[in-house]
């Protein structure tokens, strides 16, 4: 286990070194001006010099991300359970769910900003919206797709619907919920940045636009790096949880 973790760390580091070398190589070979593409050294320097600013802006983005995710995932789980329990809810909400998946939620960002303003609420709502749908639909599909033999068993044992849901359907659907969470973890950072681009006075996305306008490309890249680090951590967390759930249901 330790060896495995160590070797995957080693492989990750190797890939990173390779990417940085490639990047520096492109900068040297093309002689592109640093305000178009700064080299890794410049970006590292910008990260160091603006650490406090970046930390501050990242805090705003991260807190919106966390609140939006919590709201979206919680509501998604509750909705899926409700849909699984109630045929009436399915009748009313299923078509809506399909419609919501066909519409690019990101396109709602200007409207959400118009309604909720430049502050945190519009960012939180955007994150909640893009995470709600994948979580709801993945979890719901898992809840409804009980294997035939377990279907027969719960029928035989004269299960009450709510007990059946909590004792059999829910544990069986955890791997599906895990894949929904993975999807949500990928979408959420997009949503928060797009919401900041549309209109914000703080945050990493706001900082990127600002530094772009001022020609501080190195700072823009530094902000992008922080954002990438946040996204990666989020995805790894969701992935770990999903893997744990996959294993728990393993035969």
């Amino acid at each position: 286990m330790m060896r495995r973790a160590g070797s995957s760390f080693l492989r990750g580091s190797l890939a990173l070194i390779f990417a940085l070398t490639l990047w520096q190589g492109v900068v040297w070979l093309t002689g592109v001006p640093h305000f178009i593409l700064p080299g890794p050294g410049r970006v590292a320097l910008a990260l160091w010099n603006n650490a406090a600013l970046l930390f501050n802006q990242a805090g705003f983005t991260l807190s919106n991300l966390a609140m939006g995710l919590t709201a979206g995932v919680t509501l998604g789980i509750l909705s899926a359970l409700n849909l699984a329990m109630s045929p009436a809810a399915r009748l009313l909400l299923r078509p809506l769910m399909v419609f919501a998946q066909a519409v690019p939620i990101f396109a709602l960002a200007p409207i959400v900003t118009l309604w909720l303003g430049y502050g945190a609420p519009s960012k939180i709502l955007m994150v909640a919206l893009v995470t709600y749908f994948p979580v709801t639909s993945a979890f719901f599909v898992g809840l409804m797709r009980l294997p035939r033999d377990l279907e027969d068993l719960t029928h035989q044992l004269q299960a009450r619907p709510l007990r059946r849901l909590m004792l059999v359907q829910l544990p069986h659907a955890l791997p599906s919920l895990g894949s929904g969470l993975r999807l949500a973890a990928v979408q959420a950072p997009f949503a928060v940045i797009i919401a900041e681009w549309v209109g914000a006075s703080r945050g990493l996305g706001h900082l990127m636009l600002l530094s772009n306008g001022r020609g501080q490309t190195d700072l823009m890249f530094a902000a992008l790096f922080v954002l990438a680090a946040i996204s990666l951590c989020l995805f790894l967390g969701a992935d770990k949880l999903a893997r744990f759930w996959d294993k728990h249901g393993d035969m």
């Binding site: 033999d149 068993l153 044992l157 004269q158 299960a159 007990r163 059999v168």
Partner: peptide, 26 residues
């Protein structure tokens, strides 16, 4: 009915599987 497959819940231990009927009926 005792079926060809064991119909056991993979995430529950043997005791929880045996008591499943009562738990499902509340």
């Amino acid at each position: 009915l005792m079926a060809q497959t064991d119909q056991l819940l993979p995430w529950a231990d043997a005791l929880a599987n045996v008591t499943l009927g009562a738990r499902l009926r509340g």
